[in-house]
Design a protein around this nucleic acid. Structure first.
Lengths: 258, 258
DNA sequence: AAGCGAGGTTCCACATAATGGAACTGCGTT
DNA sequence: AACGCAGTTCCATTATGTGGAACCTCGCTT
């Protein structure tokens, strides 16, 4: 999980950002200190530099939060992402067909980062999920994405997962997960059967660039009290078709080497 | 503009992120090299470290883009921002009253960063503007925010502005800007009369924490072909009332020292 | 109100990590 | 096929980050 050793000074600064992000709320100096174990002088300098760069901001009560410049960077990262741009019309179409929430996610290490979301009820803010990182092993998009990886790459990643039972149905052994990924790879789609959140299930399909340097997935998600497993299964062709169309578009618009 | 000298190694890494962000699309090694003037070895190492940290990603054609981890950081920064959270219901109310686009922005140095947006036509994606940085001197939110600053702080900032005439109506001298800010401070609201984008005008009012450690603004924006200046002026009481309510809520919910 | 103590800041000799010139590689180009 | 340049690697030098310890300050206790 921690690769900061190899990235030198930058790694230590990012560790500070990461600690603030994991807390999910403004944190105080001493909390950061005990969480990342930097000596007071070092931590102080790191925070000071991060603040000068706009990546961290200090509240008057000496608590620290992530800075607004991160929003600006993310805004550019999102707006200039070609995969998201290419996928968007297909997500809309899939949403139109199912009238349920549709997600686009990309695999980053052992996590899925959600790049886009289309949902009916605009009451829940669109923003709340974009950029969110979830474990790959217990989400539909994540398992679909994993199914595109080469065997050795997959095995390496699976072996470094730190499994956690979010629900009673979460897969928590490498062996079971590999079997599940094998199944998904064979049939071309995945389900998340309340593995990440009780009462929420989804159908997902993998997307990827031609050379697999990018792997991700799309999904249709719904609460299980309102949408049955059978309904989810009926949507599978729609999901896989949308995924295939996205894959073609990526190949056409970005070229075979991407 | 460039403060990297004082933040050492971190500053140089952020300069790379910034260069990629300013380009707004994936950039190649040589473009980065000539834009930020780092020697090849240094730039290569910086990119390599940033990639290990997930802040930059490489495309197969050796072009570089901002990494997905920035989205994750921004997601947390946005979700845990108390000002945005407190302002949100008031933005919605203001939108309900005017049926036009409502913005929330915060002043960061010489720029306004947009934290939230409510607009009628959901066709334009909400995301596209959040996190966006615009010059403070030619936007309604920015000028409103500037009007809350103490005289010496204001003068210092105004003197370091690099003015650019985005439209024929953009204020491009420090003298005129100071007069405008004085006017705004006196009456408590601001207009952007097509100063940033031709055909777009807005009415704005300042918001701030009790101790002014946070200053920002809210605005109602509309195209001038559809909404007259007179109409904007009629909305001023609504905008200032919403701003005042936000200010009270901030004082109540965050305490007097924030 | 004064003293105490935890939280936060500053300083500096030392160790480490960044620097950048130069040599190298390999891909695309003519 | 060979050239040229974008991109990569290497290494001696040097600038930079490191972290222990002393110091400050402010809120809380007594």
């Amino acid at each position: 999980m921690d690769e900061s050793a190899s990235t030198g000074t930058l790694g230590k600064a990012v560790a500070v950002l990461d600690a603030i992000a994991r807390a999910g709320h403004p944190v105080r100096f001493r909390d950061l200190r005990e969480q990342i174990g930097q000596p007071p002088g070092t931590l102080h300098r790191n925070l000071s530099n991060l603040m000068k760069e706009g990546l961290v901001r200090a509240n008057p009560d000496n608590s620290y939060a992530l800075g607004y410049r991160l929003l600006t960077f993310a805004s550019v990262a999102w707006a200039s992402n070609r995969f998201r741009e290419i996928a968007e019309p297909h997500l809309r179409e899939l949403h139109r067909q199912t009238d349920e929430t549709v997600h686009l996610g990309v695999l980053e290490g052992l996590e899925v980062i959600y790049l886009d979301k289309v949902e009916s009820r605009q009451a829940v803010r669109m923003h709340s999920q974009i950029g969110k990182a979830s474990p790959a092993y217990c989400t539909g998009v994540g398992k679909a994405a994993l199914s595109m990886l080469a065997g050795d790459d997959l095995r390496m990643r699976v072996n470094s997962i730190d499994f956690h039972a979010f629900t009673p149905k979460t897969i928590i052994t490498a062996h079971e997960l590999e079997a599940e990924i094998g199944l998904i790879a064979g049939r071309g789609f995945a389900f998340d059967d309340e593995e990440h959140e009780t009462g929420i299930h989804c159908a997902a399909a993998p997307i990827h660039s031609p050379d697999k340097s990018f792997v991700g997935g799309i999904s249709v998600t719904a609460p299980s009290y309102r949408v049955t497993r059978a309904q989810l299964e009926q949507w599978v062709p729609l999901v896989t078709r949308a995924a295939n169309e996205i894959n073609s578009d990526i190949a056409i618009k970005l070229g075979p080497r991407v």
